Computed example of a mutant assay.
Amino acid sequence: MAANIASLLNRIASLGLGVAIAGGVVNTALYNVDGGHRAVIFDRFQGVKDDISDEGTHFLIPWVQRPIIFDIRSRPRNVPVTTGSKDLQNVNITLRILFRPEAKRLPGIYTNLGEDYDERVLPSITTEVLKAIVAQFDASELITQREVVSYKVREALVDRGKSFGLILDDISITHLTFGREFTEAVEAKQVAQQEAERARFLVEKAEQQKLAAIVAAEGDAKGAELIAKSFEEAGEGLIELRKIEAAEEIADRVSQAPNIAYLPGGNMLLNLQAP
């Protein structure tokens, strides 16, 4: 009886071990591909297979095949480049690139470039394209014609990216500066323009003041001429009128003084200033 029980236990243990081994084999034969990803299979005997695994759970041959998972969603990357303009000015440009791999070309991308394909491709083609495009423009044109430069860079980069199996969804210039010499020259030019504008303003102001003085002098001369003519025409009557007006003004001012008072019954004024 004891021998039978021991034999049964051995069978159960062997069966459990077999189930565990089978479970381990099944588990290693499954792999998952998440959303926005694709998988390429590397076979130890056949190399990288042409088939591409979509999202979901898939089977492979354990210890013989291995999945390489790629993210096929758009990702950003900043690529700084220093190059020269048409007029030999140093230009520092940074491009922001949204890129993703072309899913059907993933086997070739992995075979030729590896999983870090973006590190190998984007800096080199960006430098190549920017050096070719920027050399067509002067430093000032890079600022005034920035949209044209961006368009040319975008077209050339998209075309170059296709040859490596990359899709570039968006390309934009986020940083554009020049060398220290050019920056200092631009600042000096701006200062000179401001000084020239100030000098022109001062000249125009002096001209206006001169014209104003001439007009005022002509007005005074005309006024004096009219007064002289009036004296000639009116004679003694105008002089007497001016005397009366002057006397009235003097009398009005004296009457408003605090220390002056009128004498009763007369037109004479008495100074009542206190001692």
Rank of each mutant, 00 (worst) to 15 (best):
N90L: 10
F231M: 12
D116H: 06
V79S: 06
L95H: 05
E236W: 13
P123M: 05
L30V: 12
Y110A: 06
E181V: 13
E232A: 09
S85R: 04
D138A: 07
E147Y: 10
T82W: 03
Q89W: 05
A257H: 15
K205N: 11
E141A: 09
S150G: 05
K152T: 03
R160H: 11
N267S: 14
T126M: 05
D34I: 02
E155T: 09
Q145A: 09
E236G: 06
L226G: 04
L157M: 08
L270H: 07
G219W: 02
R253G: 03
R77E: 07
S53N: 02
P258Q: 06
D34L: 04
E115I: 14
R154Y: 11
V129H: 02
I171A: 02
H58Y: 13
K104C: 04
L60E: 01
V91F: 09
I125F: 02
N267K: 12
W63V: 11
R242S: 11
E218T: 00
A20L: 15
I239C: 08
S14K: 13
A20D: 04
G24L: 10
T82E: 13
A217N: 14
V40S: 01
K152M: 12
K189E: 15
R198T: 07
T28Y: 13
R73Q: 02
E141H: 12
A228Y: 12
K189P: 01
G36E: 02
L202G: 01
R146E: 08
